[in-house]
Amino acid sequence: MAGDSLLQQRLSLYSIPLVWLTAFLPGTFKTTLIMRHTQAFNNVTPRRNISRAVAEKSLPPDISAKILRLEGAHMNGNENLPIWFAAIIVGNMARLDNYTLNMLSLSYICGRMLYNYIYYQQQTELQGALRSTVFFICFAMPIYILLQSIPLIAAQRY
C-alpha cells in the first residue's frame, strides 16, 4: 500500500515544527481572547497581558478561565518541546525504524492536540484527570524513543 511505503520514509523530523505548533497555538488563541474581550492587550509588556486581562472586572469569568487554561496549555507545550526534539533527533541518529518513529510522531502530535483541547475545555476534576492521563501517555513516547536509542548510539564507534 502507498501509505505503508510513505510511513517507511524518514518523516519524523517533520514532527519538530508540528509539535512546536501545538505549543504555539494555545498562546495565539489566548492572545486572541484577550484582544477580543478586554482592553488589556499591550505588546510593549506582553507577558503581563494575562494578569491585566483577568483583573478586568468586565471580563466574564468563563473567558478569564479560558485565558488561564490556554496559558497553561501553552506553557506545558513549551516545557515538553525539549524532550520531544531530543528524542526525535536522537532516534534518527540511532537509526531507529522509520515506521516506528513516524507512528510515534503522529501519535504524539495527535496526543498533544487532544491534550490542548481537553485543557481548554476542562471544567471538572474528572476532565483534569483525563488531561493528565493524556499528558502521561504522550510523555511516555519520547521516553520510549530515548530508551530505545541510547544503547544503539552508545554502541556506535566513531
Rank of each mutant, 00 (worst) to 15 (best):
R48P: 00
K30M: 07
T38H: 04
T45R: 08
M35T: 15
R10A: 15
N116K: 10
F24D: 14
R157V: 13
I143R: 15
L126E: 10
P17R: 14
S51M: 09
I153G: 11
I118M: 09
L114Q: 06
R112I: 02
L18W: 05
Q8T: 15
R10F: 08
Q39P: 00
G111S: 09
E125N: 12
R69C: 00
M75C: 15
M35A: 15
N80M: 07
H74Y: 10
T28Y: 11
R47C: 06
N43G: 10
Y115E: 01
L114M: 15
E71A: 11
M75N: 11
R131G: 02
S64D: 08
W84R: 00
S51R: 05
A155H: 05
E125W: 14
Q127V: 04
T124Y: 04
N78L: 15
M93L: 15
I109S: 12
A87V: 06
G128E: 09
S132Y: 07
S107I: 06
L101I: 07
T28E: 12
K57F: 10
I50E: 01
P151S: 02
L59P: 04
I83P: 01
M141R: 06
V90A: 13
N76S: 08
Y14D: 07
Y117V: 13
S132T: 13
L106V: 09
T133V: 14
L152T: 02
Q121W: 08
L81R: 10
D62K: 15
I63K: 04
L33S: 00
M93A: 13
I153A: 12
S5L: 11
E125L: 08
I89S: 01
Y119Q: 07
N76W: 06
S105I: 02
N42D: 08
E56D: 12
Q122A: 04
E125T: 11
N43V: 05
L146W: 05
F135H: 14
V90K: 08
S149A: 15
V54Q: 01
P82N: 06
M75S: 12
L104M: 13
S51I: 08
M93I: 13
L130G: 03
G77K: 00
S132N: 14
Q8K: 13
I109K: 07
Y144S: 07
S58C: 10
M75H: 14
M141T: 05
T45M: 12
T133S: 12
P17G: 11
Q123K: 15
I145K: 01
E71P: 01
P142Y: 07
F135D: 02
A73S: 11
L104H: 02
N80Y: 08
A87R: 02
E79V: 06
C110H: 01
V19S: 03
V19A: 02
K30L: 02
P151W: 09
N102W: 01
M103Q: 09
S132L: 12
I89K: 00
Q127L: 09
R36T: 11
E79K: 14
G27K: 04
R36M: 07
L114A: 15
N80D: 11
I109T: 11
P142L: 08
I145W: 00
M35L: 10
N92Y: 02
S105E: 00
Q9I: 07
S5E: 12
A94H: 02
G77D: 06
P46G: 07
V134M: 04
T124D: 06
R10T: 10
R48D: 11
N102T: 11
L33N: 04
I145N: 03
K66W: 03
A94L: 05
P26Q: 04
Q127I: 09
Y119G: 00
M93N: 08
K57S: 14
A55Q: 12
K30P: 04
